[in-house]
Design a protein around this nucleic acid. Sequence first.
DNA 1: ACCAGATATGTGCGCCACGCACATATTTGG
DNA 2: CCAAATATGTGCGTGGCGCACATATCTGGT
Lengths: 169, 169
Amino acid sequence: METGIANLLGALSLAVMDRIEQGAREVIGRGGETPAALVVIGYGQGMTNDKLRRILGLSHSGTVRLVDRLVSDRLVERRPGKDGREIALYLTEAGAATRNELMSSRISAVGSLLDVLSPAETKRLATLIHDLLARQDTSELDRFTICRMCDDSVCTNCPLPTTKGKRAR
Amino acid sequence: METGIANLLGALSLAVMDRIEQGAREVIGRGGETPAALVVIGYGQGMTNDKLRRILGLSHSGTVRLVDRLVSDRLVERRPGKDGREIALYLTEAGAATRNELMSSRISAVGSLLDVLSPAETKRLATLIHDLLARQDTSELDRFTICRMCDDSVCTNCPLPTTKGKRAR
DNA sequence: ACCAGATATGTGCGCCACGCACATATTTGG
DNA sequence: CCAAATATGTGCGTGGCGCACATATCTGGT
């Protein structure tokens, strides 16, 4: 029962997320799932409200209001979707720029914690975290949720399994 | 520039905190800094409002309202402090029990992510995170902030540097 | 002894973020 | 063809937090 490592990882994760959140708040002035929403919307073009809701783990109305805020901030546009029921969310030019700021702020926030490690240690840590993530039993939705802040220009080879044949609903 | 590891650690930290927060919400039905406040108040007897504010990184009024909620939930008591200006925050019996639930929920949430690693991998990861934390340039306040969810019965030997002699029990 | 400043707590007010219940519009299937 | 499923939007309330202000107590210099 090695709980010491669980405690250490919990503390580190808290420190990491504190720094990420602080940076995000400086970039967009909003907290909660708002920064993640901007990243997710920029991930694939044509994101719908409902997909976004599931990825962020919010209620439906919470997601609508979140998008309302992004629209009123001129970061996101609502366009008609393929299906007459759906809407398609697109980043504005300002939205895409803000999204890039968000992601680079996140990378540098985490990097400032990591740079106390030697190159060899960094490589070992990367391998361990890579394997840890690769062995999780994640559905495709889980993967999007975990990666909802990820910089897709940096994480070119996501270790998370996507083929864990699970269909929600 | 090795930013891939930063992205991986960011994703892992997000996954860890999602699970911790979900568990905490199930235990106390409240989110934000409320669970951390309960842990911190239970850490050392006689916590003041102002110390708590600094550790949680909240505004003064936000802290007062947070304590109001904990008091109305019968988890915390306000007592007169040593100094006539201060108040001393104490856990009620129910508060102490809830705090233990919170911490064990946290440990098991993180543990469920970790148990895909072999014992040898776990040990290597523990060493790396331990060193990573030990080399951070943290003030004593930073240490309390990072450890604001820590289970002091598990983390008997906190690696974070302290400027002044620190007591843990 | 006195008073200005520092320290610590509480309050009025407002905003952001979110959920629940409900309403509306479109597609799908028997 | 119509009921159910799907997807979005709204009214309303609450939790969580910050800013500005008010109040009470302690501290130090004169």
